[in-house]
């Protein structure tokens, strides 16, 4: 298989995995929420909308992954933010689970906890990155001292 063909296949495979991950995520979240709140289930139309949203979002995610000049922390923040946005928009405009007028408690709680989750994510990544970089620089220091 030529290099170009392989790269195209690789890109498609990655795209599909992102698509399926997003689709599975929003299906699981909203199936659970609907079951808990309404005692109802997702319809075929809802699933189709989810699929279209996932397909479009996957394109965005694939573009984000092509950005090489951003830090690991920023990359994770962008992915988390985009996923949260998808969940909130689908819940607001498609399933009407989130609404400022009605069910505002769920809407406000979700927004607050998404922000809290983001803060935790940033802290976790900064600590992890510092640890990795510290270890790498220690190895560098040992290497240089070994040679001198």
């Amino acid at each position: 298989m030529s290099n170009k063909k392989f790269n195209i296949l690789k890109f498609i495979a990655n795209y599909l995995i992102i698509l399926i991950s997003i689709f599975a995520l929003i299906t699981i979240i909203f199936a659970g929420l609907l079951e808990f709140i309404n005692r109802s289930v997702l319809s075929g139309k809802d699933l189709l909308i989810f699929f279209i949203v996932s397909a479009v979002a996957s394109i965005l995610f694939s573009i984000v992954f092509k950005l090489n000049n951003i830090s690991i922390v920023l990359q994770a923040i962008i992915i988390y933010f985009l996923l949260s946005l998808i969940v909130v928009l689908v819940g607001y405009y498609v399933l009407y689970i989130y609404d400022i007028g009605h069910n505002y408690k769920l809407f406000i709680s979700t927004i607050i906890f998404i922000i809290v989750g983001l803060v935790f994510l940033i802290l976790f990544l900064i600590i992890k990155l510092r640890k990795v970089n510290k270890s790498l620089n220690e190895n560098l220091k040992n290497f240089k001292e070994r040679d001198h």
Binding site: I29, F36, L83, G117
Partner: peptide, 23 residues
């Protein structure tokens, strides 16, 4: 219930982020 559901939703989003980045 709202807080409980919000925590679960946030947790799912975090897991989704982790899976996508790791992949």
């Amino acid at each position: 219930n709202a807080i409980f559901l919000a925590i679960i939703t946030t947790f799912c989003i975090a897991i989704g982020t982790f899976i996508i980045i790791e992949n």
